[in-house]
């Protein structure tokens, strides 16, 4: 073979004659993930509101991706290890595009870094924002718990996200609609994966069923927050560019009911977690787990903000 690589590792050994190949050490790419994509704001859409909305959906994906990636090398078996890592990777890709879209819509969202910083805008958003600037729902923050907790949370999250992305695929913003249409294909198999495991654990052994029931009690208090409409979400829905999450509640309920009824498991009777100082995740008010999660996610990049390799 004269062109390209015989293996993925050959590329590492090549000496390119062109310019300086060094790149931001913590990124996954050397260029804008939206290179050449038309990021013009559609008529009748407020750019700052669109940016704030993209941040919400991007942060949901980023924080949950990081949480799921903590299973890597810790899952019950190799197949589940790879499955959860794959799901985390899909969500990371969605997060990257959504954060890049947020930065393009409203550059003021992006933390200011020293002149000459190699950090691209989407990475600045991921690594250099403080906890109160994150806009993800609290649902994605708690620790993974055991495999049953992870399965229960993934089932609810992916059912919610799939309903949302399906509606978002008709957004008047062509970038958001493209990210959503792609995401639908991916989250479809995330949901199937979680639903099959839910059923397996429910009808597995006494122990697996006991753990699944305990998991539902842990996961459920933050369920309602998924469908609470934030003012930003109301505005983007009115402008035809985003989705009011309350409109997905019935569909999510029906899909989950399919899984719960074949599993013989009822929704737990537990009170929802209330707002903190009048706000929830979408307002930047997070759970205690969030600070530790962000510390792990951000510490190396923050210690080496000019890191190149």
């Amino acid at each position: 073979m004269t062109d390209g690589h015989d293996s993925a590792y050959d590329g590492l050994l090549e000496h390119h004659t062109v310019t300086d190949d060094s790149q931001w050490a913590f990124g996954t790419d050397f260029e804008d993930p939206l290179a050449g994509v038309d990021t013009t704001i559609p008529d009748g859409v407020d750019a700052r509101t669109l940016g704030a909305y993209c941040l919400m959906l991007g942060d949901d994906a980023l924080v949950y991706s990081h949480r799921l990636s903590q299973w890597t090398s810790n899952a019950p078996d190799l197949e589940e290890d790879i499955a959860l890592a794959n799901i985390a990777l899909d969500l990371l890709g969605q997060a990257r595009l959504l954060l890049a879209r947020a930065a393009a819509a409203d550059p003021d969202l992006v933390p200011v870094l020293p002149v000459g910083s190699p950090v691209p805008p989407e990475d600045a958003l991921a690594f250099f924002r403080d906890e109160s600037a994150f806009r993800n729902v609290r649902f994605v923050e708690p620790g993974n718990g055991d495999f049953a907790v992870t399965v229960a949370r993934l089932l609810v999250f992916s059912t919610h996200r799939l309903a949302l992305l399906q509606r978002l695929a008709t957004s008047s913003d062509s970038v958001l609609s493209a990210i959503a249409a792609k995401g639908v294909k991916e989250v479809t198999y995330h949901r199937d994966y979680a639903a099959r495991w839910f059923l397996t654990l429910a009808h597995g052994t006494e122990e697996s069923r006991r753990r699944l029931l305990a998991a539902m009690v842990l996961v459920w208090p933050l369920y309602d927050e998924l469908f609470r409409t934030h003012p930003v979400e109301r505005t983007v829905a009115e402008q035809g560019v985003g989705v009011d999450p309350a409109t997905t509640a019935d569909e999510v309920h029906v899909v989950l009911e399919q899984v719960f009824s074949v599993s013989g498991i009822d929704r737990p009777d537990v009170p929802p977690t209330g707002p903190v100082s009048g706000g929830t995740g979408r307002d930047g008010r997070h759970t205690e787990d969030m600070g530790r999660l962000l510390a792990e996610l951000q510490v190396v990049a923050r210690a080496h903000p000019r890191g190149l390799w």
Partner: peptide, 14 residues
């Protein structure tokens, strides 16, 4: 191919 495909950068580079 996939939202998070880590090979995209290498494809572009190649």
């Amino acid at each position: 191919t996939y939202s998070g495909c880590p090979a995209m950068a290498t494809m572009r580079d190649d």
